[in-house]
Simulated scan of single mutants.
Amino acid sequence: MKNQLPPRRFYPCTETATENPVLLIDSDAPLLDLHACLRERLNAALEHLNLLACSSLPDFAERDLNNVANTARILVQDVSDVFRVIEHRGFDRPAPG
Rank of each mutant, 00 (worst) to 15 (best):
R89G: 11
R89A: 05
D28S: 11
N3G: 03
L38R: 07
N50F: 13
V79M: 04
L31D: 15
I74K: 10
P12L: 07
D78Q: 11
P21Y: 03
P30N: 00
E47I: 08
V68N: 01
D92W: 06
L5H: 09
L52H: 02
S27A: 09
C54V: 07
A44G: 03
P6L: 11
G90I: 06
P21F: 03
N70H: 13
F91R: 04
N67R: 10
E87W: 04
F91V: 02
P94T: 00
L52F: 13
D26C: 08
P6Y: 06
L51P: 00
H35E: 13
D81L: 03
D92I: 01
V85L: 00
D92Q: 12
L65C: 08
G97I: 05
N43T: 12
A36L: 15
N66K: 04
Y11S: 06
C54Q: 11
M1T: 05
L42A: 14
R84Y: 06
D81T: 05
A29F: 02
C13D: 10
C54I: 02
P7E: 12
A69I: 14
L31W: 09
L51N: 10
P96I: 09
P94S: 03
I74Y: 11
H35W: 15
E40I: 09
R9H: 06
T16E: 13
S80R: 07
A17N: 12
D64F: 00
I74D: 10
H35L: 14
A95Y: 04
L31R: 13
N67L: 15
P21D: 07
P94A: 01
P96S: 11
A29H: 06
Q77I: 14
V85T: 02
A69C: 13
L24V: 08
P12Y: 00
L49S: 05
V76N: 03
